[in-house]
């Protein structure tokens, strides 16, 4: 499972970065989303993945035995997912506004703010 998820994380990072650098605006947004997912999975993996052992203390015991599934990274990821969702929603609306005002979906055309005025 760990190996599979690691490969998936790597693929998501690679695909996300590729799309982020693409000149199509829509692809950039998808790239941003993929990078977010990659980071969430990365956080999950690096904080050690444990399957099938929920962090519940058995009624007969006072403390929990290791190994157990750590709830903290799950809480962190949930928060990160929600925040990511908000930002993606904003980015999509922004993209639409940019498209409506510039009539282009090509990132290479959005360089007016970088030009030296002469």
């Amino acid at each position: 499972m760990d190996v599979l998820l690691s490969i998936l994380t790597g693929l998501l990072y690679a695909a996300g970065l590729y799309l982020l650098l693409h000149k199509g605006m829509m692809k950039m947004i998808i790239g941003i989303m993929m990078l977010g997912y990659a980071s969430n999975l990365f956080l999950f993996l690096v904080a050690k993945l444990t399957r099938g052992v929920p962090a519940l203390i058995p009624s007969a015991a006072d403390t929990i035995e290791v190994p157990f599934a750590d709830p903290v990274p799950q809480a962190l990821i949930l928060t990160a997912i929600v925040i990511g969702f908000g930002i993606q929603a904003f980015a999509i609306v922004l993209l639409k506004r940019v498209y409506l005002s510039t009539r282009t979906a090509n990132m290479d055309d959005l360089n007016t703010t970088d030009k030296l005025d002469d």
Binding site: I32, L35, A38, N40, F42, I87, L94, L110
Partner: peptide, 25 residues
């Protein structure tokens, strides 16, 4: 110009936030 500038600003900041999150991990 504002919208154009903000699109770049959003993209770079979301990218930097994902790196931040990975660092926290």
């Amino acid at each position: 110009a504002q919208l154009e500038g903000t699109l770049k600003y959003v993209a770079i900041n979301v990218f930097s936030s994902t790196i931040f999150l990975a660092g926290i991990g």
